[in-house]
Simulated assay, not measured.
Amino acid sequence: MPKVLSPAQIEGFWKDGYVAPIRAISTEQAASIRAKLEAFERTIGGPLSGSLRGRSHLLFTWLNDLIREERIVDAIEDLYGENILCWASSFFIKEAEDPSFVSWHQDSTYWGLSSPDVVTAWVALSESNKANGALEVVPGTHLQDQIPHRDTFSKNNMLTRGQEVAVDVDPKSAVMLELEPGEMSLHHVRLIHGSAPNPSKRRRIGFAIRYMPTSVRQLEGEDSASLVRGIDTYRTFEHEPIPSRDMDPVAVEFHRKQHERSVKILYKGVKVPA
């Protein structure tokens, strides 16, 4: 029997490639996490940027707790079973009046994983709506195979290579996933999705957590993941340490090593831009 998702939501995920909105954490928890993020940003003198936005759960205890949040992992279990890895996490933060955007793409393009059995839990830490560039998805496109992408390396594109699907996407076919703080959406790794810039006066803060069953393998190099439920009999990923405190030197060093591995995988075949 499902733990969080209804049978209709589970059916909808496999049919349409997404389900939303789902209450992941309370509004109070979301506000607390946002406050901790912004307190850290004050210590570094500006918005979180660069490698700090990726796999941030390795650096901050409150994000490591979030990737293990029972209700979130229960929803993943409803889709993929009880042996679950968190493979990665990413902050998607659009500042007020920010020209940054996310082009139409499939997540699976450069990840190097052995199968498309991956789901993203996109957790809203602020309101995410039409006014500030909420996530949009094209229902059913996850049923297609991997679509060719072109790299743009566009300055304002938030994706690693500025990648975009090399096919036309009808924006009228897209569905906007508006979320309140503490709500999440789930989307399939092959679902075409993207988001527009944030012309509003408020930040839009989302934290994307990538989950997959332990049977998935990395084909393009050494990699790590966090076991968040069940057992890992495959052991094809190095298991990640849990930070003992925020920005613990051991955690920072592991994060640096893993970032270098990830860069090699994500930029395979192209020169990393300066």
Rank of each mutant, 00 (worst) to 15 (best):
R204W: 00
Y80S: 00
L179F: 09
N132M: 02
R229N: 10
V4M: 09
G230Q: 03
Q9H: 04
A166G: 09
H105P: 09
R34C: 09
I93K: 01
A274Q: 13
G17T: 10
L135E: 03
S108N: 11
S173A: 15
R71H: 12
A131T: 03
S244W: 13
E183Y: 04
W87T: 03
I76S: 01
I72L: 14
E180C: 08
E127T: 09
A88G: 13
E77H: 12
N198E: 00
K36F: 01
H255Q: 12
F254R: 14
L135K: 07
R203Y: 08
H259M: 14
V272F: 01
V169T: 10
L266I: 12
V228C: 06
M1G: 14
G140A: 10
P243Q: 12
I205E: 01
T141F: 03
N157G: 06
G182Y: 00
S6N: 06
Q146C: 07
E253Q: 15
H187E: 06
R190W: 13
D248S: 12
L159R: 04
V123C: 07
N64P: 02
W14Y: 14
D223M: 10
Q218Y: 08
L37R: 02
E28N: 11
W104S: 00
L143M: 14
D16G: 01
A225H: 07
S51T: 15
G162F: 00
I84T: 04
M176E: 09
R55V: 12
V216A: 01
V250W: 11
R23K: 15
I33K: 00
I205R: 00
L48E: 08
N156S: 00
Q144N: 12
M176P: 04
R55Y: 13
E70K: 15
A30T: 10
T109F: 00
G162E: 04
H57G: 02
K257M: 11
V169N: 02
R204D: 04
F254Y: 15
S215W: 13
H255C: 05
L66Q: 03
I265L: 09
V4G: 02
S103T: 01
S154D: 15
F207K: 05
R42I: 07
Q258I: 14
